[in-house]
Design a protein around this nucleic acid. Structure first.
Lengths: 217, 217
DNA sequence: ATTAAAATTTAGACAAATCTAAAAATAATT
DNA sequence: AATTATTTTTAGATTTGTCTAAATTTTAAT
């Protein structure tokens, strides 16, 4: 399985949650930063290989084989991210692109030993669950902070957007995985939210609060 | 710099010690497990990029730029090997192919942090020196065991052949980096050598002894 | 010094992954 | 329902790294 193929499979996996009746060609082209015509070609090839099911003009679905492969790529990605932050002093906003490279290294022994070396982490530095060696993904019940209710306390458990810009914003405001957040007020007009973190008050737009995952405490 | 280019540069680097007045096309083809015509094409491209100097029918030499790049690839390769053995419980005969993949991951921060994490090792699991972050290679004065003299004690400092088969032979006979070896006898006819390791006597062919590096103790 | 052998290069072709431009199918709108 | 707009696919071209087969250059041998 080539690098490009693996990246397509992973993209389809991530898009499937948004497009339940088939991932459209354009959505894939967008995610892969390529052209729709290239996607059509690739999707046909992956369908021939049995990694996904594809009906022209209808969109693509992962097959079981494709899905389990995608999950293994995600496992590798998240374990490497955890390694970089935990052992090599990387910040959580620096690891994504590097993990995109490392996730394609092919060796079961490597990834399982790395897993053990890191003490079988269940979540990566952004709070995303790490599939275990059998592809099992531990699902946590999280909500978007934008769904939060006034005067209820929450704890940050993850982020939706893992781009450096967003993560740097969180760093600047002392928000990380585990941070306790109390919702003080929600402005009706634009859903902007006033929250309290360690007695500090902060106002966040909906663009921000809908990219932070929390759970009730 | 692509994966294929990096592999060619590294191959030229390794072959230069054997072919001082130009690495022949066929030697490179052999090492790269490809055809001479492919090598000609690639060597031309690398010459255009200023990574090596190439005169038709004469062979290839690395430029300074090419050499320093090759050394960095070797640094990455050997650091990863050290990591796999030191931290992830790999045996020294299992790491080569995997390091061939890992050596192409592009990130200075990654490799320098890995270096620090491993406590700045000077040698990899096969006894080969690890270039430092400036490309400096610590050279040790080693000889082939086949050059050894009767009744002199040596210590194993490295191997020439790092293929699993050879390394497994060494494991089986309890020979590793640091093992003390006393040369007891050399058969004139075929240069086979009788040695003593921890009071155990062992006979080795020249094919073996010329792949073990030692220094006097 | 010719000729034969070996090594190297050129020419033309191929597979993978992409692109542009044009054609076809589906969805939306009047 | 017919027309327009959007999405998707096809056709043909490009780049990278490889191949085979033929031509060329260098080296070795008579």
């Amino acid at each position: 399985m080539t690098l490009a193929e693996e990246n397509y499979i992973k993209a389809v996996y991530h898009l499937e949650s948004k497009y339940e009746n088939g991932v459209p060609t354009n959505a894939l082209a967008d995610k892969m930063k390529t052209k729709a015509s290239s996607v059509t070609d690739m999707v046909k090839k992956l369908a021939e290989k049995g990694l996904l099911v594809y009906k022209p003009y209808q969109g693509a679905f992962l097959s079981e084989k494709g899905r389990s492969h995608a999950i293994m790529v995600i496992r590798r990605h998240r374990l490497w991210e955890q390694f970089l932050v935990e052992k090599l002093n990387f910040n959580w906003d620096e690891v994504h692109d590097l993990a995109e490279q490392l996730e394609h290294i092919e060796s079961d022994k490597l990834i399982n030993e790395l897993d053990a070396f890191l003490d079988f982490p269940t979540h990566d530095p952004h709070g995303d669950p790490i599939p275990d060696r059998h592809g099992q993904i531990q699902r946590t019940d999280k909500i978007m902070l934008s769904q939060g209710v006034c005067n209820i306390g929450y704890q940050c458990v993850g982020v939706n957007d893992s781009t450096p810009n967003f993560l740097k914003y969180l760093d600047k405001n002392c928000i990380g995985i585990g941070t306790k957040i109390l919702v003080k007020d929600i402005e009706e007009f634009d859903q902007s939210m006033t929250i309290k973190i360690n007695d500090k008050t902060l106002v966040m737009s909906k663009a921000i609060t809908s990219n932070i995952y929390v759970k009730k405490i």
